[in-house]
Simulated assay, not measured.
Amino acid sequence: MAVLNDLRNGLVIRLNDIIYTIVDCQHVKPGKGSAFARTKIKRITDGAVLDRTFRSNETVETVRVMDHKMQYMYRDGDILWFMDNESFEQHTLPMTLVEDSLKFLKEGETVTVKMDGQVPLAIELPNFVELQIVETDPGLRGDTVSGGSKRATLETGEVVNVPLFVQNETRIKVDTRTGKYVERI
C-alpha cells in the first residue's frame, strides 16, 4: 500500500481492480487544510487518461511490475505475439495496449514487457531503433547545403522528417521517445 508521499510519476497502482500508471503527479500543500496529490493516471488496458486527486488520508494499492525482455514475433489480427528471451514462453498482447509503440516496432525487435505476475500490461521500446526508409523524395542537388528536411516513410509505415541527403533504402536511427531522426547508419 502506498500513502500520499509515495505517489510519483511512473508508479503502477490498482484502483477498483483496474491497473493504472501515474503519468503526472503534483503534490500540493495548501496553507489551510491537509495536503493532497493532483494526478493524471493512465489506464493500462486502453490508454485512457483520467484526473484523480488523492487526499492525505487515502492509501492506494501498488502493483509490483516485473520487466521481461521479449522478442516481438508477429501480429495476428488485433493480437501481437511476443516470446520471452529466457524461458521461450509466448505471450499475447492486445493491440490496444501497444498502439503507440507500433509505429517503431518491427518483427524480431527486442522490447521490455511489463508484467503483473503472468499478465502482460505494456511494452517499452528501446530508446533508439534502426529502421529502413522505404520511400522518400530525392533531394535536389545543392539543397543539402541549406539544410532543411523532407518526409520519409519507414518500413513500419511511420513517417518521419529526415535531412535532404537521406535516400531510399537507407537505414536510419530513430528516437522512439520523440519520433525524430537521429542519424544515418
Score class of each variant (00 low, 15 high):
residue 122 A to R: 03
residue 108 G to C: 05
residue 133 I to K: 12
residue 78 D to A: 11
residue 126 P to I: 06
residue 69 K to E: 01
residue 77 G to I: 00
residue 69 K to W: 01
residue 89 E to N: 15
residue 70 M to S: 01
residue 150 K to Q: 15
residue 132 Q to T: 13
residue 92 T to K: 15
residue 90 Q to R: 13
residue 73 M to L: 12
residue 113 V to H: 03
residue 150 K to T: 11
residue 77 G to D: 11
residue 148 G to R: 13
residue 124 E to L: 06
residue 108 G to L: 04
residue 74 Y to F: 11
residue 94 P to Y: 05
residue 75 R to Y: 03
residue 80 L to N: 08
residue 128 F to Q: 10
residue 107 E to D: 13
residue 68 H to M: 01
residue 147 G to Y: 05
residue 103 K to N: 07
residue 142 G to I: 10
residue 92 T to D: 09
residue 110 T to K: 07
residue 69 K to F: 00
residue 136 T to I: 12
residue 81 W to A: 10
residue 120 P to L: 11
residue 111 V to M: 03
residue 148 G to H: 11
residue 106 K to A: 06
residue 130 E to H: 14
residue 117 G to D: 06
residue 92 T to M: 02
residue 93 L to T: 02
residue 149 S to E: 15
residue 102 L to H: 14
residue 127 N to A: 11
residue 124 E to M: 10
residue 145 V to L: 14
residue 74 Y to D: 07
residue 126 P to K: 13
residue 85 N to C: 08
residue 72 Y to M: 06
residue 100 D to N: 11
residue 72 Y to P: 14
residue 130 E to M: 10
residue 104 F to V: 00
residue 91 H to M: 15
residue 141 R to Q: 09
residue 142 G to T: 11
residue 86 E to R: 12
residue 128 F to S: 04
residue 73 M to T: 01
residue 130 E to C: 08
residue 122 A to I: 05
residue 141 R to A: 09
residue 150 K to N: 02
residue 143 D to Y: 15
residue 70 M to V: 08
residue 134 V to K: 12
residue 101 S to Q: 10
residue 151 R to S: 06
residue 104 F to D: 02
residue 72 Y to S: 13
residue 80 L to Q: 13
residue 108 G to W: 06
residue 70 M to E: 00
residue 95 M to C: 15
residue 105 L to A: 07
residue 127 N to S: 04
residue 114 K to H: 09
residue 104 F to Y: 08
residue 133 I to V: 10
residue 142 G to R: 07
residue 77 G to T: 05
residue 103 K to V: 02
residue 98 V to M: 07
residue 140 L to Q: 09
residue 113 V to K: 10
residue 144 T to P: 15
residue 98 V to W: 01
residue 69 K to A: 13
residue 69 K to D: 07
residue 95 M to F: 06
residue 138 P to A: 03
residue 113 V to N: 03
residue 129 V to T: 05
residue 86 E to A: 03
residue 89 E to M: 08
residue 125 L to I: 14
residue 87 S to N: 07
residue 141 R to E: 09
residue 130 E to L: 07
residue 87 S to P: 06
residue 121 L to K: 07
residue 140 L to D: 10
residue 96 T to Q: 10
residue 141 R to V: 08
residue 94 P to W: 05
residue 90 Q to S: 02
residue 68 H to P: 06
residue 105 L to Q: 02
residue 96 T to W: 04
residue 100 D to F: 03
residue 139 G to R: 08
residue 140 L to V: 13
residue 101 S to V: 02
residue 97 L to P: 00
residue 83 M to E: 04
residue 144 T to W: 14
residue 139 G to T: 09
residue 84 D to E: 00
residue 82 F to D: 00
residue 88 F to V: 00
residue 151 R to L: 09
residue 122 A to F: 03
residue 101 S to C: 04
residue 110 T to G: 04
residue 105 L to N: 05
residue 134 V to H: 10
residue 74 Y to A: 06
residue 129 V to C: 15
residue 97 L to Q: 12
residue 89 E to V: 03
residue 150 K to S: 01
residue 144 T to I: 14
residue 89 E to G: 03
residue 69 K to P: 08
residue 108 G to V: 05
residue 69 K to I: 02
residue 146 S to V: 04
